[in-house]
């Protein structure tokens, strides 16, 4: 349905790349089935079908011009019927015909996945409709994001300390992925890694390990090694006790229906 969503990111040929885990590469190839072409979200103008205009019925013409006027935002089929003021049955028939003629396509609206959302075939849905570059068919492409995160984490660990630009350059230079990724998109992935607490943002001091980075610039250091468990290694106080994660803590009272002496979570925890 969407020709732009075909596999674009593939590993280029050639020998093993320095500093890149071959196992990870294999995963990239495997995961690349779901990869999307991030930078190429531009509209592709299709030549108008000269004959199709003549072959359209009145209803079809009305609907088609309405749909085209919405450009890359498209329109919900129910709104379409209302705005066109065409009876339901006739509108449905005309819409089906337009789709079969390849003039109109259905797209998934990330906000309302169940709704039938129509768009003129020559437009690519806007980020508002698709959810942006990280969405595929209305859902967050977590598998792809995880692969990207993993690659970025590996590169940051390899570099020791790195800015977003350095990570983007390294990705470009190592040519792991065929498609070009903008620095902004790599930045988004790196920020997500920082939110995961896998890396930490530090300000360059310009000395020691930061010698190659301009002082004051934001850079990232590795906290979790790639492949290591995502569970935090630090022992925390509250979260390591059943009460710290108990949904019924508020109702828990000594001698009450829920109480520390009769608590099942406690019993399970203390089962030696």
């Amino acid at each position: 349905m969407n020709s732009m969503r075909m596999m674009k990111a593939v590993v280029r040929g050639g020998g093993p790349l320095p500093g890149v885990d071959q196992f990870a590469l294999a995963r990239v190839v495997e995961g690349s089935r779901n990869l999307i072409c991030l930078p190429g979200m531009s509209k592709r103008k299709r030549p108008e079908l000269a004959a199709s205009g003549a072959a359209l019925t009145e209803h079809e013409k009305t609907l088609y011009s309405l749909i085209r006027s919405k450009q890359d935002m498209g329109i919900w089929s129910k709104d379409l019927k209302q705005e066109a003021k065409i009876p339901d049955n006739a509108a449905m028939k005309a819409l089906k015909s337009l789709i079969s003629k390849g003039l109109v396509k259905e797209v998934v609206n990330v906000h309302f996945k169940a709704r039938k959302h129509c768009m003129a075939a020559e437009f690519e849905p806007s980020a508002e409709i698709t959810g942006g570059p990280w969405y595929n068919q209305g859902s967050l492409d977590t598998e792809f994001i995880d692969i990207m995160k993993d690659q970025c984490l590996r590169l940051i660990c390899k570099l020791g300390v790195a800015t977003v630009d350095m990570v983007a350059d390294e990705i470009k230079r190592s040519r792991i992925l065929k498609a070009d990724y903008q620095v902004q998109q790599i930045g988004e992935i790196v920020k997500a890694l920082a939110l995961d607490n896998d890396i930490v943002e530090v300000k360059s001091t310009g000395i020691g390990e930061f010698a190659s980075i301009q002082p004051g610039k934001s850079c990232y250091k590795c906290l979790r090694l790639p492949g290591a468990s995502k569970e935090p290694s630090k022992v925390v106080a509250m979260a390591s006790v059943p009460c710290g994660v108990c949904p019924h803590l508020r109702e828990c009272t000594p001698g009450g229906i829920i109480s520390p002496t009769t608590c099942d979570y406690f019993t399970k925890w203390l089962d030696f």
Partner: peptide
């Protein structure tokens, strides 16, 4: 505090 009390009571 609630958790600490619960641990003591247990």
């Amino acid at each position: 505090y609630h958790t600490a009390l619960n641990l003591c009571q247990r």
